[in-house]
Amino acid sequence: MSPLTITTRDAATGPVLEITGDLDHHTAPELRKAVERLTLAAGQRLVLDLARLNFCDSSGISALLSARSLATEQGAGMALAAVPANTARILRIVGLDQVFTIHDDVSAATAADSSDPSCRQTIV
């Protein structure tokens, strides 16, 4: 089990949360709290960088959905970046690849035109 670490930084499009470790039943509340502490402006995009995510269970998926809901409530968008293959597979199986905007990496997710569907990652 890898401890969860969440690092926040700003990009031109809005905040980027780098999530490292395991996102599970025990740590999902940490992600929820980190997102709740953010102030998102309408038109911004919250990016969750999952490049260093080791494990994500159903509680972690629920926390990702909560982050998306909070961003939407504040008039912001949300994108996932660098989704690991095992998590991407789960998102695809349950149809959440159609709910989340997913990018290959943070630079694509924070590009000004990343709302363009051609910038999105295809989950296989």
Rank of each mutant, 00 (worst) to 15 (best):
I123D: 07
A42V: 12
G75L: 10
A112N: 09
A12V: 09
T27M: 05
A88C: 12
D22Y: 02
H103R: 13
H103S: 12
L48W: 08
S114Y: 08
D10K: 15
A42Y: 00
P29A: 09
Q44L: 02
D116P: 14
L46E: 09
R37C: 10
L65R: 06
Q121Y: 07
A109T: 01
R52H: 15
Q74A: 14
I61E: 04
L38D: 03
D24E: 14
R45T: 14
C56L: 03
G77Q: 07
S59Y: 05
C119Y: 05
Q74V: 00
G21D: 03
R89D: 03
T122N: 10
R120C: 10
S107K: 10
T101Y: 00
A63M: 06
S114Q: 02
R92K: 15
L91Q: 04
N54L: 11
E18W: 00
G43I: 01
S115T: 11
A12H: 13
A76I: 05
V16A: 05
L64N: 07
P15G: 03
T39C: 08
A88Q: 06
V16Y: 01
P3L: 10
G75N: 07
T27I: 05
I90Q: 08
S58T: 08
A108S: 14
L46V: 06
T101E: 05
A34S: 15
A41V: 02
T7R: 11
R68N: 09
L40Q: 10
D104H: 15
S66A: 14
Q98A: 15
L91R: 01
S69Y: 08
R92E: 09
R89Y: 12
T122P: 03
A34F: 04
D116S: 13
C56N: 07
C56D: 01
Q121M: 15
P15T: 03
V83E: 09
G21T: 00
L17I: 00
A42T: 13
S114M: 09
I19Q: 02
I19A: 01
D97K: 04
A67D: 11
A82Q: 00
L50S: 12
G14D: 07
I61Y: 05
A111L: 10
C119R: 14
L23Q: 08
A51F: 12
A76Y: 10
L23H: 04
I93F: 09
C56W: 00
D22S: 13
A85R: 12
A81F: 07
G75H: 04
G60Y: 09
H26W: 07
T27V: 08
V124Y: 11
A12T: 08
S66I: 01
L70Q: 14
L70F: 12
R9P: 04
D24P: 13
A12S: 13
L80T: 02
D49S: 05
Q98L: 15
S115C: 05
T5F: 11
A34W: 03
A111V: 08
L23E: 03
E73K: 15
P84T: 03
Q44D: 13
E18F: 00
T8R: 15
